[in-house]
Amino acid sequence: MNLNIFVQHFINALSLGSLYGLVAVGYTMVYGILRLINFAHGDIFMLGAYFVYFATIVYHLPWAIGVIIAIILTTICGLLVDRIAYKPLREAPRISALISAIGVSFFIENFAVVVFTGMPRPVVQPPILMKPIEFSGGIRLIPLGILVPVVSFVLVGALLWLLYRTKPGLAMRAISFDIEATRMMGVSVNRIIALAFGLGSALAAVAGIMWALRYPRVEPFMVMTPGIKAFIAAVFGGIGSVPGAMIGGLILGFVEIMSVAFFPTLSGYKDAFAFLLLIMILLFRPTGLLGEKLEDKI
């Protein structure tokens, strides 16, 4: 394996891993706050991809504008999911919200099949993202391969800044430990929860858009595999932990790409490796890499 090929694989793994991470962050944020696995999160990712497809390919908007519109629309969808499917169940037993989550997920997927049809649609990649750049040492990379991890890291960095350096971030971290105590401090809890859904959905939209560019097509069930991988990444990294979700995503991306690169005969098992990792971590470190033991609430 020469340097060029290795760098290709490395960048590929970084791209895929950071996409898993970006989606995983949304799972982990909502779980951290509400102890709810937001099954609809993956479908939000799919909607992001469709919105950008319609904006740029059907309505011929420039990519920059299409991306912004797609992110805004996807964020609104994420907020609506919270408002319609979860908010009325805040005081209900946790299992109710979980069932509601499964229902919303099925609804969005099948709604997408009805509205968008089940046919995969090709995404036309902007040529500027696909034109290889030559580096020294014979390394050739396409800009998209570099753009994906850069955008992902910048966004997760911005999210961490928000969580650890701003007042809404402080409230979000507080809510995840004790909703009532946080409310006593004057925090409008539902607004902070909506913020978490909004941010998670915006990140999922970005991930969906970049996924659609990498595997240039969109379809209603496109999120099946990346959604499960992202969820595994969130559990692997320690559900509730934002840096953990990103690290989990990257590890998954690297295992998937590198196992195929170094052991091409095992390529059929690449998805199995993800589950193997999940089983191992659940056996030996059930709280995940960076997860903290959940303290019992008084």
Binding site: R173, A174, F177, A181, M184, E295
Partner: peptide
């Protein structure tokens, strides 16, 4: 029960 936030 104080209800301080343990991880903050």
């Amino acid at each position: 029960g104080r209800r301080i936030l343990p991880q903050l």
